[in-house]
């Protein structure tokens, strides 16, 4: 074992690392927000939609959960190109990750919806609230509060999994690393550095979610209960 580490060789490339970090964050933030919206709508549709809608959503969820993310990314990338629409690799990556995380979000939020006892809806009904009002105030909010830790894990996982989109040369962090190691020939150092950066990113994303949760779910903040 006479390998001599030389992390200094990476220093001149800090800008590319930084760009990679920003793009990773951008792609995963986009997918998180849109995936959350899609997933939540799907969860409600699956709980309360017509039989056809229910089956449609179930099919979407099962197809996504039972195929590799990498394949989904390729299908999105080449599929969109085949439709004659020109989108950058970054956009294709965001779309693929959105569709992917939407399915997982659907399952998580669905579990949350199921955890809300019928008596809660009945109480709201007895207060003359409309169906939409009941859903919004009494079902969705507490349901999401309840599954918030699972959602956080899922979105951290998404951020890490976004490295896969380097395969369609989306310009995120792993792609940056691939380029840097090919010019510095310092592969080991590069990927150690990148691994470390992902580690930090995970902590940052987790912290951001915790902070956001404390702001939105006021009860947790006031009672000091952990999310």
């Amino acid at each position: 074992m006479s390998y001599r580490f030389d992390f200094l060789a990476l220093l001149p490339y800090w800008r590319e690392f930084l760009w990679g970090v920003l793009l990773t964050l951008q792609i995963s933030a986009t997918a998180t927000v849109s995936g959350f919206i899609i997933g939540t709508i799907c969860a409600i549709a699956r709980a309360d939609g017509s039989p056809f809608i229910k089956r449609l959503v179930a099919t979407y969820v099962e197809v996504i959960r039972n195929t590799p993310l990498l394949v989904q990314v390729f299908i999105a990338y080449f599929g969109i190109a085949t439709l004659g629409v020109h989108v950058s690799a970054n956009v294709a990556a965001s779309i693929a990750l959105t569709v992917n995380v939407g399915a997982y979000t659907c399952e998580i939020v669905r579990a949350g919806l199921q955890s809300i006892h019928r008596s809660q809806m009945e109480a709201a009904e007895c207060l003359a609230l409309s169906r939409t009002q009941i859903y919004w105030h009494v079902v969705i909010r507490p349901a999401i509060e309840r599954v918030y830790p699972s959602l956080t894990s899922q979105y951290v996982l998404l951020m890490l999994a976004s490295s896969i989109t380097s395969q369609i040369s989306a310009a995120e962090l792993t792609a940056a690393a691939n380029r840097i190691q090919s010019v510095t020939f310092r592969s080991f150092e590069t990927y150690i550095a990148v691994g470390f950066i992902y580690l930090v990113l995970s902590f940052v994303v987790r912290a951001a979610f915790a902070l956001f949760g404390q702001t939105v779910f006021t009860r947790r903040r006031k009672l000091g209960t952990a999310l």
């Binding site: 009002q133 009494v138 779910f217 009860r219």
Partner: peptide
């Protein structure tokens, strides 16, 4: 026109006492 109270209270756990009470007057 009709109020109903149940054995299991059925308060909304994520809302304060005040918010529990304000919900229906503001929504309805």
């Amino acid at each position: 026109d009709v109020g109903m109270v149940f054995q299991s209270y059925n308060l909304f756990p994520h809302l304060t006492v005040e918010q529990n009470i304000m919900l229906a007057p503001t929504c309805v």
